[in-house]
């Protein structure tokens, strides 16, 4: 009885591994294609969009990418400022807002939380135009702040942080901090934030990725050569139907994704190991 159970369990484990390896291949596939295409010429890509064999045009693709009227290094720098800035703001203020909703009982808190949810439901395609016109009128085009400051109000992140706190934040901790004489703001910064690390790490990844890959708003807000982000530069390589430099586009996409890898792998230890925060208090 016990033996057959462990055989079944062994077979089950094999199934899990096969299944996970299959999913992993499926997930890595587009990256392989992207990196391989970065080494192929535009015409090779046009003939066969997908190939598993690298070619020898990496250098010439790089020359096309850097030979344009913009500087990819500068784009990298710009993207980094915008994404870091908006991620930092989104994470910090979302956690703070969620904390305000969870830790304090104030009259408006239910109404306030409902409002946050409502904000999340607004379709973005049309309001982005209203937003653009507004930014244009107050002279915030070509200014990174127009892309960074709105992150202070990131409803989905607040929502996540709230749900996470509801499930896992021991409020007794706050009480004991009060007894120790800690101010509310200090309690948040030095006690709550560290506990929220796993939640912060996951949300930081999502926010950073979304901001780094964002194209539409930067494309219409940043019209100055010096302010272009990496995705804008890549999109300029394909601005014209008859002169799309696919090799350089894929190289640009590959270069765009590399920093995301780094950030992701840096933060992924929280996803892998998981600092189980329930264990903070016995």
């Amino acid at each position: 009885m016990k033996k057959s159970n462990s055989v079944g369990r062994g077979a089950f484990r094999v199934f899990i591994y096969v299944f996970c390896i299959f999913l992993a291949i499926l997930s890595l596939f587009p990256f392989v294609i992207m990196f391989i295409n970065a080494t192929r010429s535009t015409f090779e890509i046009q003939q066969n969009g997908i190939s598993l064999l690298p070619s020898r045009y990496l250098a010439s693709n790089y020359a096309v990418f850097t030979g344009k009227t913009f500087d990819p290094l500068k784009g990298f720098y710009n993207s980094a400022i915008i994404s870091t800035g908006s991620t930092a703001l989104a994470i910090y203020f979302s956690t703070l807002t969620a904390y305000a909703v969870v830790a304090y009982s104030w009259k408006m808190r239910q109404a306030f939380f409902s409002m946050i949810l409502a904000v999340m439901m607004i379709p973005a395609q049309v309001t982005s135009i209203g937003f653009y016109q507004f930014m244009y009128r107050i002279g915030m085009t070509n200014n990174f702040l127009a892309l960074i400051l709105p992150s202070i109000a990131a409803p989905a992140t607040v929502f996540f942080m709230r749900q996470y706190m509801l499930a896992s934040l021991p409020l007794e901790l706050v009480d004991s901090a009060r007894i120790d004489g800690s101010g509310e703001f200090n309690t948040f910064n030095w006690i709550i934030l560290p506990i929220m690390k796993p939640a912060i790490a996951t949300q930081a990844i999502f926010t950073f990725v979304a901001s780094w890959n964002n194209l539409f708003l930067p494309l219409i807000l940043l019209t100055n050569n010096d302010k272009y982000t990496l995705p804008i530069m890549v999109s300029l390589l394909r601005g014209d139907i008859y002169r799309t430099e696919y090799g350089a586009v894929y190289l640009g996409l590959a270069l765009t994704v590399l920093p995301l890898f780094i950030i992701y792998f840096m933060l992924s230890k929280y996803i892998i190991a998981g600092v189980a925060l329930g264990g903070v208090k016995g």
Binding site: L219, I220, T223, N225, S235, L236
Partner: peptide, 26 residues
């Protein structure tokens, strides 16, 4: 002074329209 906006995602026209309508220094 050059401003290049790709026609990708239809981004060129809204930006150009806005710039033409505003007629400022840029």
């Amino acid at each position: 002074k050059t401003t290049i906006i790709a026609t990708t995602d239809g981004a060129y026209q809204p930006a150009l329209d806005q710039a033409l309508a505003a007629s400022g220094a840029d």
